Simulated assay, not measured.
Amino acid sequence: MSPNALIPSHRKPRRSASSRALRAGVTGGFLTLAVTGATVPANAADKPVAETQELPTITTALTVDLAESADATQQVAEVYERQAAQDKAASSAAQAAKKDKAAAEKKAAEAKKKAAEAKKKAAEALETRASRSADRTSLTGGGSADSGSDASTPSTGATGSTATLLSFLQAQVGKAYISGSTGPSAYDCSGLVQTAFRQIGIQLPRVSQDQSTAGTQVGLSNLQVGDILYWGGAGSAYHVGVYVGNGNFIGAQNPSTGVVERPLSYDPPSGAVRVL
C-alpha cells in the first residue's frame, strides 16, 4: 500500500451509488435532461435536486405537415397559373374574332357600295345613250335640218327595195319620238324600223331585243344600206336604227331629238343584222 494511502487528502473520493444519474425523456415534443447528485454546494440547499432544461425538437408529424402544406401551395399555384393562361387565350380569341367580324363587315359594305356605283353608272350610260343631246359638236343641227342631210350626202347607189326603204326613212326625219308609236306622225326606235321594213314587204318583230336577232349578224366594218343596227347585246338590245350609207344611220333617238340622221360616231352601235 502506498504510504500516502492513509492520508485522507490523497484518497480518491468514493462514487456514491446515487452520486450521479442521467435521465432523459421526451415529453410534449421537448427533450428533457435531468442531472442529480448526492453532493451539492452548501449554498444550493434551497435549490431542487434536479435541474431541467427543455430543448425544442421537430417531430416526424410536424415534418409531414410542412411537406403536405408545401405540396398544397404548389398545386394551388399551378391551378392559378393554368387558369390565367386559359383566360388569356380566351381573351385573345375573342379579340381576334371581333377583329375578323369587323373586317368582314367592312368588306361587305365596300362590295355593296361598288355594286351600287356600278348599277348607277350603267343606268346613267343607258340614259345618256337614249337621250343624247342634239347639239353635240359632231352635229350640224336637228329636226328639219337633218331632213335635208340626204341632199348633201353622196348617193348610196341604192336601187329597188333598198332605195324604197331609204326614201321612206329619210321622209320620217324630223318627226317626233313617242314611246310605243309606230307612225305615221311619231315613232319610237323599233316602231320606226318595223314600219320602214313593212314598206318593202318584210315583217319584223316589234321590239328592239327581237329585231337584233331577226337576220344574219354582220360586222360593223362590212355594213350595207338597210342593215339594222342595234345597241346593247344581240337579243338584249335597248335601241335600234337603220344604216343608210356613207357612215350614217337613221333612227328615232329620244323625245329630245325625235327621228334624226346621225353619223355612226355619234353613238357607235354594238352590232348589226342583215335582213335584205
Rank of each mutant, 00 (worst) to 15 (best):
A5Q: 13
A5D: 15
A17L: 11
R20P: 04
G28C: 10
F30H: 12
L33E: 05
T39H: 11
P41I: 01
A44R: 06
I58Q: 12
A61K: 14
D65I: 10
A67E: 11
T73S: 12
Y80I: 15
A85T: 09
A89H: 04
A89W: 05
S91P: 01
S92P: 00
A103F: 07
A103R: 09
K120T: 10
A122E: 12
S131N: 15
T137P: 07
L139D: 14
G143V: 01
S144H: 01
G148R: 02
S152W: 06
T153W: 04
G157N: 05
L165A: 05
G174A: 01
S181R: 03
G183I: 00
P184V: 04
S185N: 12
S185V: 08
A186I: 07
S190N: 06
P205Q: 01
S208E: 06
T213V: 15
T216K: 14
Q217A: 15
Q217W: 04
V218Q: 03
L223Q: 04
Q224A: 08
V225G: 05
D227V: 00
D227S: 04
A237Q: 01
Y238L: 03
N246D: 11
N246C: 09
N246E: 13
N246K: 07
N254F: 00
E261Y: 00
D267I: 02
D267C: 05
P268I: 03
G271W: 08
G271R: 09
